[in-house]
Nucleic acid binder design. Structure first.
Length: 285
DNA sequence: CTGTAATCCTGCGAGC
DNA sequence: TGCTCGCAGGATTACA
């Protein structure tokens, strides 16, 4: 499932492949995606050069030289790749942007939770994202983070999934961050001490940075912009490992439902009722 | 302010 | 082996 590290990997892969290239034709599938593509946008995109790519949370903004943008969300199973134009179409292909030269930018998405939209103004599109999304999770402001987490009675899982608190965290990295911080995901934000808030903030940044280094987690469908799979799933401490031993203490990883999502944790390293002896972050090796 | 659940969707694995 | 069924979940919305 593409979360921040996966989306960042796609952007980094695609940037050198797309920047400076011109879109020469647009192919579109018939099936609807999560958000609509305006039919009139086909003509506006053809002839446009790609000025750059950026990521905001789990969103991708593909800037065009004329000041417009394509806004992409990978949803659950979206794949945004550059492939040889001569390569046969895969199933579930929804967009093909032919480029000058041999390549084609393709959007494939079996489950169709993703979207590709044309934005007349890249600046407006970026501002719209900023308006609803919290800060990027690198270089978070400690007091602001403490205020956001400590000021709510929601559980940590819900808080971390809330894009308005921190942008880009999804189910996998919410669980992994809680594990690294030694915090039970059912703890409420306002039950955390300042030190625990700080630990959580550091854990979020660390796990996301490490996951980017591993090119993200490929659970099922995810691939980067060049079609390569991720490797960070091999480093998951708790996500998807219910019943398996905790890497820190070998206790069986537990799975409960929080905020409507499966939530994995170590009952030993992440006690629900914090005690002084157990309130230490587990080590990962 | 909370939480819960439905909505969108297909693939896959478990169970029989 | 083939069927059904439940689950996976990002963002949004409705409702309790």
């Amino acid at each position: 499932m593409p979360e921040l590290p996966e989306v960042e990997t796609v952007v980094r892969d695609l940037r050198p492949l797309l920047t400076g290239r011109t879109i020469t034709a647009v192919r579109r599938g018939k099936l609807k995606l999560r958000r609509p593509w305006a039919a009139a946008a086909d003509a506006l995109v053809v002839g446009a050069a790609v000025a750059g790519l950026r990521r905001r949370g789990k969103w991708i903004l593909l800037d065009l030289a004329g000041g417009q943008a394509l806004r992409v969300h990978l949803g659950m199973t979206g794949q945004l790749t550059v492939a040889p134009a001569a390569e046969a179409d895969p199933d579930h292909l929804h967009f093909g942007f032919r480029l000058d030269g041999p390549g084609e930018l393709r959007f494939r998405d079996p489950r169709r939770f993703g979207s590709v939209e044309f934005c007349p103004s890249a600046a407006d599109a970026a501002a719209a994202l900023d308006a609803v999304m919290g800060p990027e999770p690198f270089g978070l402001d400690p007091p602001a983070f403490r205020a956001a987490v400590g000021g709510t009675g929601r559980n940590l899982k819900a808080v971390l999934l809330d894009q308005a608190v921190v942008a880009g965290v999804g189910n996998i990295y919410a669980d992994e961050a809680c594990f690294r911080a030694g915090l039970h995901p059912a703890r409420t934000g306002n039950s955390l001490t300042a030190a625990e808030c700080d630990r959580l903030r550091v854990a979020i940044e660390a796990v996301l940075a490490r996951a980017i280094e591993g090119r993200g987690s490929t659970i099922r469908d995810y691939v980067g912009g060049s079609g390569l799979r991720g490797a960070f799933q091999h480093e998951h401490a708790v996500y998807g490992r219910a019943g398996e031993p905790c890497p820190a203490c070998a206790a069986a990883v537990a799975c409960v439902r929080l905020a409507g999502r499966s939530s994995h944790y170590c009952p030993n390293c992440q006690p629900e009722t914090p005690s002084r002896s157990a309130a230490r972050a587990p080590r990962r090796g």
